[in-house]
Design a protein around this nucleic acid. Structure first.
Lengths: 226, 226
DNA sequence: ACGGATTGTCACGATTTGGTGACGTAACTC
DNA sequence: GAGTTACGTCACCAAATCGTGACAATCCGT
């Protein structure tokens, strides 16, 4: 069971303690504050995994906290608001909130949303990415195709990872030489082509008609999510 | 204004048409279906940018569609459900939905959520410019016309990109030779004309009466956003 | 040091491309 | 409307680009 460092900001003490208790019961680690100022300090100092912000707060309100947090980094944010306040929804989402929950909150619902958002945030930074049949585990440095593990040599793997880091983008040879090989020199060589070919031979069902790594003549290569 | 290819799945015809109308008014491009099966086909064939799924559907329900879509790729999903059905929220978010909206839906709210999600999804995506039917993706180096991918050769693409970089501006031949060809020499030749012609043949519906690349006699060429 | 794995290099051929000039056509001038 | 200029169009072939397989150099564990 995953335990998240949750930052809860809610000025109503009874709601705050109730939510804190409920979330703690669900297995989360919660820190709560009553004001936006305190929250911002906490975020800067303690780096929580997710923030749950009441929209209506004395001083800096939840939306403003959200906006400032968003400028800082990708910390996921859930906004809490009184029922039916549609304007808040619009403004809140535009401020960059990941989700929006209406009070009174069913703890089970809030928990599900927290987990969904964390899962999403995690998958964005996670070690495993799936492209159809192709699964690349960046933590374990393993690649599987249709469930079968594929052995890639270090250079091949670095090349594939570099391509995958920019899905859909065309990367030219010079860039790849710099990122994968550290070469700044070497104007022309078939090096990249040869390595691409080797990777294709291993991950493409039909290397003649590549599905994943496409050649863009005159420019470079592009990894295409299927 | 960003125009999204939205897939809407809702079995109640009145709700469906109402939502479709509202979203279209907000500037989105919407395709709608009544069943999950159709939706899955559409997703495979047309690659929408976001899917809005009613949870209660005949046959494959929205949550199941969501689950299958998630296995396939990163398509963002918003679930629609009847008010107060908390169980759906939990299950839905666990199926990987990005958001969850309670019916009846305020179109403005739905629009805000769609935009928030697209904004999030887009930050990872590449930079595309749309000129009517013509979409130029400068990251993927892909050009599509009315959804169909157009193959441009490197020089043709560089020329088009250069023209697009200065929409509405007249670019003379000398300038284009410098930017696209690196030539400083070559005073006169039909080189630029020939290339413009080749690009026109590929992107203009009627190359005889160009819509995008206009000739400015005595000066050069101008890319006109429609 | 040996053997295998890995990685860089090269050469060759298949394919794509794009520059060129000749010529036809449209536009502008008077 | 004739003359002039600018532009469009086309086909050809040299050059560029890639894929590929063979091979050499290097690395690494035993």
């Amino acid at each position: 069971m995953r335990v998240a460092g949750i930052l809860l900001v809610e000025d109503d003490p009874s709601v705050r303690t109730a939510l804190e208790l409920a979330l703690t019961r669900q297995g989360h680690s919660v820190t709560s504050y009553a004001t936006g100022e305190e929250a911002l300090d906490h975020i800067r100092a303690r780096r929580p995994e997710i923030a749950i912000l009441d929209v209506m707060l004395p001083g800096i309100d939840g939306i403003e906290v959200c906006r400032r947090v968003r400028k800082l980094d990708q910390l996921p944010v859930i906004l809490l608001t009184a029922r039916g306040d549609d304007l808040d929804v619009v403004v809140g989402l535009e401020a960059g909130a990941d989700d929006y929950v209406v009070k009174p909150v069913e703890p089970r619902v809030l928990d599900a949303r927290i987990r969904a958002i964390l899962r999403r945030a995690e998958s964005a930074a996670s070690d495993r990415i799936t492209f159809g049949d192709l699964v690349v585990d960046r933590g374990a440095l393993k690649v599987t195709l249709a469930g079968k593990e594929i052995h890639l040599t270090p250079t091949e793997l670095r090349l594939l990872l570099e391509l995958i880091r920019h899905p859909g983008q065309v990367l030219n040879r010079r860039y790849l030489l710099r990122e994968v090989w550290d070469h700044t020199h070497i104007a022309d060589s078939r090096l990249v082509d040869a390595c691409v070919q080797r990777v294709r031979a291993k991950i493409e069902p039909r290397p003649g008609e590549p599905v994943f790594i496409h050649t863009v003549r005159g420019f470079g290569y592009r990894f295409n999510p299927p």
